[in-house]
Amino acid sequence: MWIEQVTTKSGEIRYKYCERYQCPYSGKTKRVSLTYSSNSKQTQKLALIALMDKINKATNTDLHNDITLATIIKEYLDSKRGFRKASTQYSMDNLYKTLIQWFPEDILLSKLTTYIIQTTFDNFARKYSYNYTKAGLSLVRQSLKYARRMDYISNISFIDNVELQRPVTDVDRIKRQREKFLTKAELKDVLQQLDTIHHHVSLLCEFQSLTGLRFGEMVALRNQDYDSTTMEIDINGTISSSGSFKDPKMRLPPKNVYSIRKVRLDKRANQILNYFITAKKARRLWKSKFEDNDYIFVTDGGLPYDLHYVNKILKKLNFHKHISTHTFRHTHISLLAESNVPLKAIMERVGHNEPRTTLAVYTHVTDEMKKEMNLAINSIGKVISNK
């Protein structure tokens, strides 16, 4: 260490304590320095300790030993911020907050083992769904891959040995899966109940059941997305469910490339859409504070309807099934399947890119299809008996 005396612009004397070291990355000789107002023996000792600390931090290639798993996951999520949809990032942030509580507190990256991760997710799976647990493990895996790319850790093979435990299929689980849609009679009942609670929400849900749109796609519809001549709507965006609707950035690209599509409206869906267009024009005239935008499905204040608000209204229903806005999308798929519409045509209408996604919704057998099956079975029996 050596000391250089310097004079500031104000004429004061300062002492710069300097030291050299070799950079482990470039091999070049570099210099670190600290400036103090004193040149006493005590200050020299303090400066030497501080300089050595700076050099150790600059040359230590094993800093990952002091990094916690929580820090790595947070750093990974931050690296993706701005490259994901706001709604996706919001969900990932919430998953991180939930997930990190299940790991040993402040566990270091260097202390992770297959045993720790496996037992953590075994416990996690006992409280949360398989898909949510799978998403949590995926987040940890992607964070570890990020840590390896950033040279925080060299070996992450321990994550490859982790296996998720699939829940045992029981009767209640199967029943819940079948309750993701409504029959025609149930749909009529629900919409009638909704109409007495909130007329506009009832119309929104009816529109979903007639078109199969995701809620975000529906409230993202603008005047320019509607062709009254062909009675078609152009699905080219979605509204995020988190943030301020006044922010133009809330309107995002659709879920995937297959979600960009045109959807034909029937007479009733066309009527509902025009009702909202007319109602908006009227509100604009008599409302002093009204957000002027191109959206069609808006509240009295001129902003798009909020997903959380609509789901809150749905909770007021006196109904034997759990209902959310997505129930009406599933119902549309189910009704199309019941009408024997080809799988490919349904996929294109609702914006699915994989058959299994659509099949997961409508592979159940509706009451109407059961009746048709029974008639077919009886017909087969008659044919056989006649022979």
Rank of each mutant, 00 (worst) to 15 (best):
H198T: 01
D195I: 07
S209M: 02
Q208L: 15
C205G: 04
L204W: 00
L194D: 01
Q193N: 09
D172E: 15
R176W: 11
K175I: 13
D172Q: 15
E179Y: 06
H198F: 02
V190L: 03
L203F: 04
Q192F: 13
R176N: 14
Q192C: 12
S209I: 07
S209D: 05
V190P: 06
E206C: 09
K180Q: 14
E179V: 02
K175R: 13
Q193Y: 05
E206V: 01
L203M: 08
E206Y: 07
E206I: 08
F207C: 04
S202M: 07
K180V: 03
A185N: 14
T196E: 13
V201K: 03
R176T: 10
F181D: 09
T183L: 06
V190F: 04
A185S: 12
R178T: 00
R173V: 10
E186T: 06
E179L: 00
V190T: 03
H198E: 08
Q177C: 12
T183N: 09
D172V: 11
K188G: 07
K184G: 09
I197A: 03
L203A: 03
E206M: 02
H199S: 10
Q192P: 10
H200R: 07
F181V: 02
D195W: 06
K184Y: 10
I174P: 03
L203T: 07
S202G: 14
I174R: 08
H200C: 07
R178C: 04
I174S: 06
Q177Y: 11
E206F: 02
S202V: 04
Q208H: 13
F181A: 00
A185K: 12
L204K: 03
H199Q: 08
R173G: 04
L203K: 00
K184A: 08
F181M: 10
T196P: 02
T196Y: 06
Q208F: 09
L191Q: 08
R173S: 14
H200N: 03
T183A: 00
E186G: 00
D172H: 14
Q208W: 06
K175P: 10
R173Q: 12
F207K: 02
R173E: 15
Q208S: 14
K184S: 06
Q193V: 00
K180T: 09
C205L: 11
E179Q: 13
L203S: 02
V190W: 09
D172Y: 13
K175E: 15
R178W: 04
L204R: 06
H198S: 11
C205Y: 07
E186Y: 07
K180I: 00
H200S: 04
F207G: 07
K184H: 13
R178I: 07
D195A: 00
L194R: 00
H200W: 00
Q193H: 10
H198W: 03
I197S: 08
D195H: 07
L204F: 06
R173W: 14
L194Q: 00
